[in-house]
Each structure stands twice: as C-alpha cells, then as structure tokens.
Design a protein around this nucleic acid. Structure first.
Lengths: 116, 116
DNA sequence: TCGATGTATCGAAGATTGTCAATCTATACT
DNA sequence: AGTATAGATTGACAATCTTCGATACATCGA
C-alpha cells in the first residue's frame, strides 16, 4: 500500500520489524531511505529541535542560525525529512511551520527494538 | 565515555533520546553513524538474516549467495556494522561467526520512539 | 505598487559511499 | 610442503550526498 504525503510517495513497508524472519529485499529497500533520512547529524538535530520547540513546531528560518547553515541547506534537509514522512510542513502566510510526525518516528524505532 | 569494540571506538552517546530537549551537535555526530550503518538495504538484510539465523549467528560466507554480492562487498558491510557496534564477530577456525548485538539495536530504536 | 522576507529550486564543487577485481593473511586438510 | 577456503584490505570507479551562491516564487507591510 502506498500513501501520499506532501506530493511524495512513502510505502508502508518502511517499518517492518527486523526480527520476524529475514526481511526481503523489497522491505529493506523501503526501510533504508527512512533510516537514511535520520542518518545525518543535521537532520537529527532538526528533528530534535522540532520536538523540543514550543508547540512542537518551528519555521525553517528559526533553524538556520542554531544549525549554523545556509538557508538552502536547511531547506534541503527539511525536504529529505519530508520525503521520508518524518516531518510535515504547514504553510501559514510567509512561513512554513514544520513539525515531526511522531508515529513515523515511533514506527521506525519500534522496528529496531527486539520484539522478543 | 568511550569503549573499545573490536579495535574501534564507539561512544555511548549513540542513543540519546531525541525527545528530551534538543540534542547538541556532539550527540548528533555520535548517533548519525549508527543510524547510517542501518540505512542501507544490504545491511538491513544482513542484520535481519543474522537475527533469523539458527543460533543467531552466521558466517560471512553464508551471506554472500543470498545477498547476491561479492565477498569483499559483504565484508565491507559487515565492517560498517561492526564499527557501529551493531554486530560482533567471533573467529572460529577459518570462519567468523557474526552475531547482532541486540542491546545496541534496541538502544537506537528506543531513542527514536517517543518517550512521552 | 514596491521592497522586504520566508522558502524552494537550480547548478556546481567537494566529500562520502557502494561495488568489485586483485591481492594478502590465516586456517584447515592432505 | 602444497593446496584450498574464509575473511580482510587495497585501489578504482560510478553514484550519491552535503553544502552553498544565485535565483525564482510567494506573501506581507508600507
């Protein structure tokens, strides 16, 4: 099954537990990009900053200075997180309010935690 | 704190929860490589195959054929997983028996799951 | 309407990564 | 000793990724 998420497709297979028999290549190909989205210091900090932000949201512009990165770079990382379904952006006026999709984060985490 | 793991250093900061206030750059730099080790379809399958293997172990040679990859490639991926502390290898005769370090896997998973 | 601001996109430079052939080391068998 | 096998390492190459300046688009305020 495939769902639409901000114009980009993300399959449900992203979070298959690793423990119930060996996963096939298809599932591995679905999980890897989501983990890859988190496998970057900058993006980990972005997720963390969004979770720690008041209301759980922040606009992109407020991330640039604490990260010490240029605006296009931050925008790029937010796009990667969006495409992985880990973050959503809601446009309000000039700003885009970004927030973490906690279910998505939990799903991946749970897939890694031993089920037995 | 730093611990030795098969001649390679892996810090304890790898699994800081993302939810207790924003993590600093140092912690993000420690977590990212561990997630990066899992952010590859081949390595996900290796971890999964090791978990599913009888006794929870397998030698490198038994992974090559099901993965459809050359021996140096499998060896490379096992090295990445070892350096991330996700896998351990025990040499027995000609073979090295590889095993997943489940605590390590659980730690990273737990760091991603919402704590509140 | 015009200038300022928040975002996204494009293009390029530099670094990193995945893959494999070739090679080397270590162990086991004869 | 000689051969075969498991694994690691090296070197090379293509593909991908991170970063940023330049630019374009959209929205707000004057």
């Amino acid at each position: 099954m495939v769902m639409k998420l901000l114009e980009l497709e993300v399959t449900d297979y992203c979070c298959t537990p690793l423990h119930d028999g060996a996963i096939d290549e298809e599932k591995a190909l679905a999980m890897a990009p989501v983990l890859g989205a988190l496998a970057d210091p900058v993006r980990l900090r972005i997720v963390s900053m969004l979770l720690a932000a008041p209301e759980g949201t922040s606009c992109g512009c407020d991330l640039e200075e604490p990260l010490g990165l240029a605006q296009p770079t931050v925008s790029h990382h937010l796009k990667v997180l969006r495409e992985a379904g880990l973050v959503e952006g809601e446009k309000r006026g000039r700003w885009v309010h970004y927030r973490v999709v906690p279910e998505r984060l939990s799903e991946i985490g749970a897939a890694l935690v031993a089920s037995s």
